[in-house]
Design a protein around this nucleic acid. Structure first.
Lengths: 190, 190, 190, 190
DNA sequence: TATGAATGAGCCTTCATTCAT
DNA sequence: TATGAATGAAGGCTCATTCAT
């Protein structure tokens, strides 16, 4: 189905995120999402087969947007640490500033809503990050361990840190960001 | 009359965990939990005020059990790295082997079901871990940063690693465990 | 889309009355009401927030309808006794012939379902009757006592009489109606 | 079944009345009644077959107690009006002062809980009142109409008046009582 | 007999989805 | 295509009644 009105899809996506942030994935009913998006409930079904598809598409969309965000302004020709730092900072900022998206991805990824295909698709989107890690290994600046483990070492702390900020238990500033980065870098550096 | 039955509470807790693992926190209906536990729906309400209380009590119970597990066999009089490694290993094993519990805590902590009090109580239970980190800082073996950040650096990778194992994307062995530990240790060590 | 349907509201109101008559206010479940009205249970909630609102609106509606009925064909320019008789007869007939409505009002008024606001609203609707009593007092044809007492003297016997008819212990005819009226008139006349 | 403990039955009856007054006939659950009476839920079933029987027996008990109350201190050898006034006053006082009982009888009589037998039994208990009315007719002091109608003319206003008092819309004093009595007397007198 | 835990049908309400307009 | 009323299967919870102790 080729939606006529991209702006409407956009509004639906945004309403979905807002509602999930407010009332959680289960509390975000189709009626609430529709109202928030300024359309009728039935209209949701013009653009999406059902709630599952709405969430899945939103997930893929956010995930690919996120990865694009991660590699934004990546100074590819700079020394590795500089490049990595840029990407890491993008990841942290994305998770902190766009908490809705980050939280949704985390929630959805572990939810029963996600299907195997969507999960796999999400992984595929991470390719650019893997490429970055591979470069680091080639240059012998990053430990030679499974990318999945490196990823765990990088994302894990970011998720937890963003959560701390969201809970109000931590306020970020340059010094703290530097500390967190240093910890992660020490964690993965060869 | 029949006395309240501890074994029954136990069965309810276990059924709850199983169901949440299978169908998520929202999908785990009181009826499903009851059936799984082998009791009538109404019986759940003999032991718990409502679903919220059931989940909250289960959370606190698991969390305190987890922390107890974390500090189990802790060789308190050994050098710090040895002690920390023991605790870290306990944490990893808990999250990997008792995936139901780990997954529930993560889901519940981020869900709309949790109340502020329960969240605070959960934090309070972490006191022993904070004590361990404090010792590390006193001995100048651990970076002098906020415990919350250290905790993010330690738990984040553990959660992600356990998730990888659960998804079948990673199989743990001594070598990999050693790699992961080394990454975390390098991350937090002074 | 389907517009909200007045006939449906009507059907719901009627089904509610029927069910309350059959099984009482507590026995009249939303499901029964819906079935009787020929709609799905959920449809009730399109028209009414909840059971309380359904009953409250029905109450106000019936009460105002009843009062309108009471003063119907009131020969306002006739001597007081004629006017009063007309109104009294309307009241009796309403309570006898439209037993469902009468019974519902009585039950609801004394139930725990009714709220203070609705009770007050119900009283307000009685204004025309009070006006009639006031005229009687002005013309010194009616005792100068509190309207509430007069009302008790008028309505009380009507309710009881209607109940007798409903139970089959009494059949009304002109002579009996005359007797009952005379008793009430003697009761309130100056 | 011959209950051992009359005091317990008494406590149950009183608790039932209290609960019905507080939360209505439907809200008065067996568990609440039991708790209020200071016994276990199951104990109710030692003394009563089920809720229906509990209510029915309570009804008959109250009704007969009420009638006994009505004819209390009846100066049988006095002039009719004196005697009638005494009985009428007893009725009014019972309905006003023992509102729980009065309200319960009214509620129960019109509820779906009551069976034909109980209703008939209730009527039978009214025999003394009918005797009083019959005497009035013999002495040609009371209109020669069906006792049921006389009863409607007497009880109806009493119920309504008691309700007014209960709602706080009326406070009784000697003057008002006199007014109300006069209205009723004028209503039934020959 | 007394207790209160256990039962499960049933209650009110919600909500993903359908469908008449 | 867009609307939102209509649907009915659950969901959380209650409660009369039963039953093990």
């Amino acid at each position: 189905m080729r939606p006529k009105d991209d702006a409407k899809v956009e509004a639906i996506y945004e309403a979905t995120l807002r509602q999930i942030d407010e009332v959680g994935i289960a509390g975000a009913t189709m009626a609430r999402i529709a109202r928030d998006a300024g359309v009728a409930t039935g209209t949701l079904y013009t653009y999406f087969e059902n709630k599952h598809e709405l969430l899945s598409k939103l997930y893929v969309r956010i995930k690919s947007g996120a990865v694009a965000e991660f590699v934004r302004d990546m100074p590819a020709d700079q020394p590795y640490r500089i490049v990595f730092r840029r990407v890491w900072l993008n990841m942290l900022q994305f998770n902190v500033q766009r908490h809705l998206e980050g939280t949704f991805m985390a929630q959805f990824y572990r939810s029963t809503y996600i299907s195997e295909e969507v999960r796999a698709e999400g992984l595929r989107l991470f390719q650019p990050i893997n490429a970055l890690l591979d470069r680091g290994k080639r240059e012998q600046l990053v430990r030679d361990v499974d990318n999945a483990l490196l990823h765990a070492a990088i994302s894990g702390p970011i998720y937890e840190t963003a959560q701390l900020v969201h809970e109000g238990r931590l306020t970020l500033n340059d010094e703290i960001i530097e500390q967190v980065f240093q910890m992660t870098w020490d964690s993965i550096k060869a």
